[in-house]
Design a binder for these strands. Structure first.
Lengths: 348, 348
DNA sequence: AACCGGGATGACAACGCTGTCATTTCGACT
DNA sequence: AGTCGAAATGACAGCGTTGTCATCCCGGTT
């Protein structure tokens, strides 16, 4: 049958409590003893029983992943990253699709935390950027890490993994400017996403630094969807003085913009350049491939999970104050330019 | 703190064992007693502690979802369906991305089952259609349910939720034939998917029933990807005698075909009809929208999970032989035609 | 050489539930 | 009313781990 802590203790010639100490990295175990135990663990391929740990211990070995982003690629990427981090540390993952706009969210969160005894929460946008939700989470006193666009991180940096949308958008815009584009259309994502504002901000800053006056008529509101990209691009391209480039706030919109351009028989990239954002599989499934900003969602999620786990752990073990600034966990990510087929110099 | 079985027992004036009997639906509890207990449960909002259940009981309250399909939409849909079923029955879900082609699969599965003490497995294609993998799962003696294309279900119907690709493809093809199309191109999905063969089979049958001779040159091998759709459609449309309609084996390929047609300035649906398969968000993110066969992945997954849970339960409880044919769980799904913008009568 | 203090270790209860088995209850039949 | 058997219920021991607290051992003091 399954190998338990008793087997390990017997093999190592110590008590189960000592084994427990070793696998939990508690102090007061002589190096020699520790080695004996670790050898036994390895030899028997022992792995602590999660159910028993959860039951007996004060801390839990489960964290939850909460999301309400409709983009499947995004969610899967994040989920896999978190899963990796959990596996590495012997934790379990509870998947919790939710809806930040629903009035039940608060009770839902409460139930999740109280009932399931989770050690921590990983939140992604737009859920992670909804103030009331964060408020509730804070009140619950559970450890959490929010993955957010930098602008949304202000108040509790310590619980955030940030994505610097503004800087990335700046870089992307600069790329277009460098290629001679003077009129660049901008398709905004949904208002509820902080990233929408960050990306727009970066875009504007780059324009300004490039000495180009604001062109309000080229900035269009929208949503992070294909349809929205189609509509926005159409509007831009049908205007009297159409832009020579379009900055779409994500790849899906860029694919939409691309589609619209095709419909209008516009040659790409000769007449029009298009850039996306995120580097989702979407940008590669379009054809030819989109120039975009690569956002390492998998890695971001892994760091978020690692961070929340380290919080949960340090809390459980030594209450040694300095636990917060975890070494080795990257806190800020700036998506970086990936130049592909869909952008080129401005037409002369 | 948390409300436990003891609180319920106290409130109801019975022993904890009786409470246990009630919440597990075991026999030999007087209706009056049962009611008392249920009332107490409701009043206290009691929910059994999963860790304790897992630890104490012989059966486990965790099932695993194993997949290796790269399509995020597909996976998320399935996952949500399974999650629903689990929640409804108080089970926990273990997410396990895998790779049916990796040589480590067997050991991986073994570890998963032995170590994590899962009550059941839900498998999706192509993982669920890989013979060696199924072999391993069977050997492990764990309950499982495979979601498969009907053709792959032969041997162990009892553990399958089937998707009748052939019939659905037949219907879709018939739809095209009814509109007067005589030359229809067919873009195959990846060989490793049984659905690829089922869909082709349905296509051929419909053609035959429609009195149209096989046109081998119109059937192209491919993969379930956008790129593959682009390539295939290009090839078809550049031939001497191009088809008036294209049956793409999934929506992603259809989107690719659509894209290729646009590039070649082919008017749709006037000159060419395109149909997809699956009704993934993809088919709606394309624009205008694709005609396709709606495959209710969410529902399918829910049934699969319900089935595996009923297996696990019946095994744990009364070993009453007849447990297998679960009432009320749909076993076969036939995706059904969803007519949208991208198909029309054949050009005259 | 006896003594002390603190690090190292172990014994044992507890976590919340299920499984086993003993005990009680109840209706039906003498 | 007394007896019997099955149904209903409960007492109690685990499940594999952690937390608490007692014990042991050791080097350093006096």
């Amino acid at each position: 049958m399954k190998v338990t802590i008793n087997d390990v203790a017997a093999k190592a010639g110590v008590s189960i409590k000592t084994v427990s100490r070793v696998i939990n990295n508690e102090p007061s175990v002589r190096p020699a003893t520790k080695k004996k135990v670790m050898d036994a663990v390895k030899e028997l391929n022992y792995q602590p029983n999660l159910a028993a740990r959860n039951l007996a211990g004060t801390r839990s070995y489960t964290i939850a992943f909460i999301y309400d982003n409709p983009n499947a690629y995004y969610v899967i990427d994040m989920q896999n990253g978190i899963l990796d981090a959990c596996k590495a540390r012997g934790y379990e993952l509870l998947i919790h699709p939710s809806n930040s706009k629903s009035p039940d969210v608060h009770k839902e969160l409460e139930d999740l935390v109280e009932h399931s005894k989770v050690a921590g929460l990983v939140l992604t946008p737009p859920f992670s950027e909804t103030p009331e939700v964060i408020e509730t989470v804070k009140k619950l006193g559970v450890d959490y890490v929010r993955i957010v666009s930098s602008e949304a991180a202000q108040k509790d940096e310590d619980n955030c993994i940030q994505v610097d949308d503004s800087s990335a958008a700046y870089e992307l815009t600069k790329h277009l400017l460098d290629q001679g584009h003077k009129r660049i259309g901008f398709l905004c994502g949904g208002e509820e996403h902080v990233s929408t504002h960050g990306r727009l901000d970066g875009f504007k800053r780059a324009l300004q630094d490039g000495g180009i006056a604001p062109q309000q008529e080229l900035i269009l509101k929208g949503e992070y969807s294909f349809d929205s990209g189609v509509q926005g691009a159409k509007k831009l391209l049908q205007s009297d003085n159409p832009p020579t480039a379009i900055f779409a706030s994500n790849d899906e919109m860029a694919a939409g913009a691309l589609f619209a351009a095709r419909l209008m028989n516009i040659d790409i990239p000769a007449q029009l350049s298009i850039v996306g954002f995120e580097d989702s599989p979407f940008s590669r499934q379009t054809w030819p491939k989109l120039t975009t900003a690569h956002q390492p969602n998998n890695e971001i999620a892994k760091c978020a999970a690692a961070l929340v786990l380290s919080k949960a752990r340090s809390k459980g073990a030594a209450e040694s104050g300095s636990a917060s600034k975890e070494a080795g966990i990257q806190r800020t990510f700036t998506p970086s330019l990936v130049e592909r087929d869909y952008s080129g110099p401005a037409p002369s």
